[in-house]
Simulated scan of single mutants.
Amino acid sequence: MSSDLPDYYFRVRENGAVVFRVDTENRQRRIEMDQIAVVNIKNGDVKPHGDTKLTKEDKAEINAWMAERRALLDARTVDDILRTVDHLNLTSQWVQSKATPDQLEQITDTLLLAMHDLRSVLVRKKADRLLKGKK
């Protein structure tokens, strides 16, 4: 089992990860995880832990993880937006078929303002893209 473990473990946190080097080659045959760095995915900072000197392999693994993590987070963002579209469609159906007048009173203004704000931003961004395409 221990031979199947990766050489590095990334403990995900809010803006990145804590990076550990995994060691199973010790006399007790225990899994040891030595913290080697802290990664900030937002700004790309990699801070070695304590007196740790990161090797080229460490840096390569960390950079590969950061690229994969960014791609995963980007994909999740798009998926979340597509789920929002589904929720908007379900909300439309609920409003048309099941909502009571009291429920509509509760949500109408907030939902209209949010939709107006979203529409304004989308229209502005679409116009910017169209203008860039003509230049």
Rank of each mutant, 00 (worst) to 15 (best):
R129C: 10
K42F: 09
Y9G: 03
K125H: 06
L122I: 12
S120A: 12
S97T: 09
N15Q: 13
F10C: 02
G16I: 06
R29G: 08
D109S: 10
T100H: 00
D34S: 09
Q103P: 00
D34Q: 11
I31Y: 03
E14I: 00
L111Q: 07
D45R: 15
S2D: 12
L130F: 08
W94E: 00
V18L: 15
K132S: 14
D23R: 03
V46R: 04
T77Q: 08
D45C: 07
K59I: 14
W94C: 04
V22E: 08
N89H: 02
D58C: 08
D79R: 03
D4C: 10
T84N: 10
K98T: 07
D58P: 06
D79P: 03
R119P: 06
N63V: 07
P48E: 05
A64K: 06
T84K: 05
Q96Y: 00
V46E: 04
I62A: 05
M1E: 12
M1P: 01
A71V: 03
A127Q: 14
R119W: 03
A71P: 02
V22P: 00
I41N: 13
F20M: 05
V46S: 04
F20V: 06
Q28Y: 13
K125N: 10
V18M: 15
Q93P: 01
A71R: 09
R83I: 08
A127F: 07
R27C: 07
V121T: 14
G50F: 04
L73N: 11
D23W: 04
R69C: 09
L130M: 13
H116G: 01
R124C: 02
R83M: 11
H49Y: 15
Q35L: 01
K53Q: 13
T110Y: 00
K134G: 02
D7R: 12
S92H: 07
D117Q: 11
V85E: 07
L111K: 03
D79C: 06
L113K: 08
K53W: 09
S3H: 11
V46W: 03
T24P: 05
D109G: 01
M1F: 10
D4Q: 15
A60Q: 10
E25F: 06
A60N: 09
V123G: 02
I62Y: 05
D128G: 03
S97L: 07
K134C: 07
T91P: 01
Y9E: 15
T108F: 04
T24Q: 02
A60T: 13
R76V: 04
G50E: 08
T84R: 07
M33L: 10
N40G: 05
G44Q: 08
L112V: 10
N63Q: 13
K126E: 11
D4E: 15
A17Q: 00
S2Y: 09
L111V: 11
A75N: 11
E25S: 13
T52C: 10
V78W: 01
P6N: 11
F20L: 12
T108W: 00
D80K: 06
T91E: 05
D4N: 15
G44P: 06
K135P: 08
I31L: 12
V46D: 01
A114M: 09
T100D: 00
R29Q: 14
N26H: 07
D86C: 07
D117G: 03
T110D: 04
A99F: 00
V85F: 01
G44I: 06
